[in-house]
Design a protein around this nucleic acid. Structure first.
Lengths: 86, 86
DNA sequence: GGGAATATTCCC
DNA sequence: GGGAATATTCCC
């Protein structure tokens, strides 16, 4: 038996599944939600997102730490468009 | 200017200074304290230590994670003697 | 106990 | 943005 890493399994990394759950929760759509097309997600209220939602899923409340992980996993570009509606 | 890492500075790693503070706090001596000789520290109540004290200094409440770090930094052997008095 | 994966922080 | 240090988890 050889060890199997998360990357080798077809299971998404914890960061990705947590982020999905976080975004997909409709009760917090005023803070973060999918865009109209469902192709991306939008953080509408960064302060609330960081302070209230991040600690529910992660061991921190820093927006920048979340972005660091996002960059690691999905080379996601958080453009101004995504944040303009805050 | 070249970057200077914590190891290169003479500043102790965050883990070590936090652990020192945690142990040295006399208000929690019933849970964790230095031994008589001051040569080691003793965790008297592992459950309280993990549940109440660890989260005040670290982003978790797992005794095993604390021990993992301890092993990394000080090759500390948590012998039975240290835990027998629980 | 400790190697390795993953997460968080720090800093360029 | 991302490399690297440090922290936390997972698993042998």
């Amino acid at each position: 038996m050889t060890a199997v890493t998360a990357a080798q399994r077809s299971v998404p990394a914890p960061f990705l599944s947590k982020t999905y759950q976080l975004v997909d929760d409709h009760s917090t759509d005023d803070v973060v939600s999918w865009n109209e097309e469902g192709t991306a997600f939008v953080v509408w209220k960064t302060a609330e997102f960081a302070k209230d939602l991040l600690p529910q899923y992660f061991k921190h409340n820093n927006f920048s730490s979340f972005i660091r992980q996002l960059n690691t996993y999905v080379s996601f570009t958080l453009t101004k468009t995504h944040l303009l509606s805050i």
